[in-house]
Simulated assay, not measured.
Amino acid sequence: MKLDTQRYFIELAYNGTPYHGWQIQPNAMTVQECLDKALSVFFRQPVITLGCGRTDTGVHATQFFAHFDLLTESAFAIEQKVNSINSLLPYTIAIKRIFRVENDAHARFHALSRAYQYHLHFHKDPFKLDRSWLYKGNLDVEAMNEAAKLIASYTDFSCFSKSNTQTFTNNCKITEAHFDRVDDALVFTIRADRFLRNMVRAVVGTLIRVGKKEIDLVELAQIMESKDRRNAGQSVPACGLYLVRVDYPFVTADV
Rank of each mutant, 00 (worst) to 15 (best):
K212H: 11
T165R: 04
R209M: 10
L186E: 02
D193V: 01
R201T: 08
A177Q: 06
R201Q: 13
A192I: 00
N198W: 03
R209C: 09
D183V: 10
C159A: 15
Y154F: 10
K162P: 05
Q166A: 13
H178S: 12
F188G: 00
I208Y: 05
L150E: 12
I190F: 07
M144V: 06
Y154T: 06
G205W: 08
I151A: 03
I215E: 00
A177K: 06
G211I: 01
A202N: 15
Y154G: 06
R181Y: 15
G211P: 04
S158I: 03
L150M: 09
V141C: 08
F195C: 00
R191T: 15
N164V: 08
V200K: 06
T175M: 07
C159T: 08
V204C: 08
A152H: 12
N198Y: 14
L207F: 08
A152K: 10
Y154K: 09
T165Y: 08
K212M: 14
T175P: 06
A143Q: 07
R194C: 12
G211K: 03
A148F: 04
K162E: 10
A148H: 04
K212F: 02
K213P: 00
A177L: 09
T165M: 06
R194W: 10
D180R: 13
V204N: 01
D193F: 05
V200Y: 09
V204H: 05
V204R: 04
V210P: 01
D193R: 06
E214P: 00
Q166F: 14
R209Y: 05
E214S: 00
L207W: 04
F160W: 05
E214Q: 02
T155L: 12
T206D: 11
G211V: 02
I215T: 01
V141F: 10
N198M: 04
F195N: 01
A143M: 07
F188N: 03
D156C: 03
A147E: 04
F157S: 07
T189H: 14
N170A: 09
C172L: 07
F188P: 00
V141R: 06
R181I: 11
D184Q: 11
S158K: 04
C172R: 03
R194F: 08
V200D: 11
R209A: 09
R201L: 13
E142S: 14
R194Q: 10
S158E: 08
D184I: 08
R201G: 11
A185S: 15
A192T: 01
D156I: 01
E176H: 15
A202R: 15
C159D: 10
K213I: 00
R194I: 02
F195V: 00
K173Y: 15
N198V: 06
S153D: 11
N145W: 09
I174H: 05
D156G: 02
E176R: 15
H178R: 13
T206H: 14
I215H: 00
I215L: 01
R181T: 12
R181E: 14
T155A: 13
C172P: 03
E142I: 14
N171G: 10
F160H: 05
R191V: 09
A185H: 07
N145T: 06
A177D: 05
V200P: 01
V210F: 05
D183Q: 12
T189E: 12
